[in-house]
Write a protein that binds this DNA or RNA. Structure first.
Ligand code: FES
Ligand code: FES
Lengths: 182, 182
DNA sequence: CATAATGCGGACAATATCAGTCCGCGTTAT
DNA sequence: ATAACGCGGACTGATATTGTCCGCATTATG
């Protein structure tokens, strides 16, 4: 994939659902099935968000994840960094010091400070990160909420409650909604 | 490597030397040896720059590459795109359409337009690209020229001329300068 | 207390991309 | 004629991405 991986897309979409849902914890399995993505893979993303203090985990049978902070206080940049780990946009190999006229021993003026090329890349990276930092989870949530029709919210809540009641003690023959596809 | 690969670093440093050197063509072998990088690998980068109209190739025994335009008219973004091929920062997998409540048939309001998450990423990518577009090869060249002491320029020219005179008919025992290291 | 669902972590595998090598072809100045 | 050059394809090794699978500890529920 590109610089920002699918893990980021998965994580952001999950956090968006967590922000929309109330204070009921959603498990990674619920979120994976709900969005049609791999649970095994999603399960590797959430611990990173938990360690970054973005979500709060609760173990046990009715456990799951809750947003640890208000959506307004979670920037996209924080999420990206939590999942990808502060990956640099450009990785300078210090080519400049290998110039043949230095003969293997570059003077300090040549390797001092940041290379001019690297500097441009760092500026570009900062511009990117500033943009990501300027947007919060709440901002994105607002944008998506504007597109959805009014009945969608209750549709989602219905799926969630059906899912939760299907667990533990009620293996009811018609509780879940998975037979919708094929 | 990161999103911007070593090919970009190699290409930019080479173009910088091309901008500094006059109208004498420099071969990819010269540039590779001069900077202590792999010639074979560098040879895969230059054709991309040539197809993008950034450098001009001349075949033959004294051939090599020349800048096709003035350094002021070559932006860093053009170089990056020429080498990496317009790689997107974020590759949306359209998760939103797989929501379970849609049952495999997402309505058009859900998949219409650009996803709110994707939109943020596109803005971040644009910020990055704008920064790269705002810097020209001449700008970077000016920055590096300020650091180098006055004698460096003639040192480089000396290496180049020694290198060129070492070729073709003068396999002189002491012409080149490669025995400098180990 | 027993159990089932959950989070967490590690081992593993499939695939893609990156970085780099190697070779052969056609071209061109000397 | 020849040696140096650009161009392109085939090939390789290393690393990252995208998953899968399993076992362990924890915890609410019955
Ligand atoms: S030495 Fe790494 S960008 Fe110049
Ligand atoms: S569907 Fe890809 S970012 Fe939302």
């Amino acid at each position: 994939m590109a610089h920002l991986t699918v893990s980021v897309e998965y994580g952001l979409h999950c956090l968006l659902w967590l922000a929309g849902s109330g204070d009921k914890p959603l498990s990674s399995r619920d979120l994976a099935d709900f969005q049609g993505i791999s649970h095994s893979f999603l399960a590797k993303i959430f611990p990173k968000l938990e360690k970054a203090g973005i979500v709060q985990a609760s173990g046990g049978v009715r456990g799951g994840y809750l947003l640890a902070r208000a959506p307004e206080d979670i920037s996209v940049l924080q999420i990206v960094d939590a999942i990808e780990g502060r990956k640099p946009l450009f990785d300078c190999q210090e080519i400049r010091g290998r110039c043949a006229v230095f003969g293997g021993a570059p003077p300090e003026w040549a390797t001092d400070g940041v290379c001019a090329i690297h500097l441009v890349m760092l500026r570009a990276e900062k511009a990117m990160r500033d943009t990501l930092a300027s947007q919060s989870l709440a901002d994105i949530g607002q944008t998506v909420a504007k597109k959805a029709p009014s009945h969608f919210s209750s549709d989602v809540e219905g799926w969630i409650t059906a899912r939760l009641s299907g667990r533990l003690g009620k293996p009811s023959t018609s509780s879940s909604g998975e037979e919708v596809l094929s």
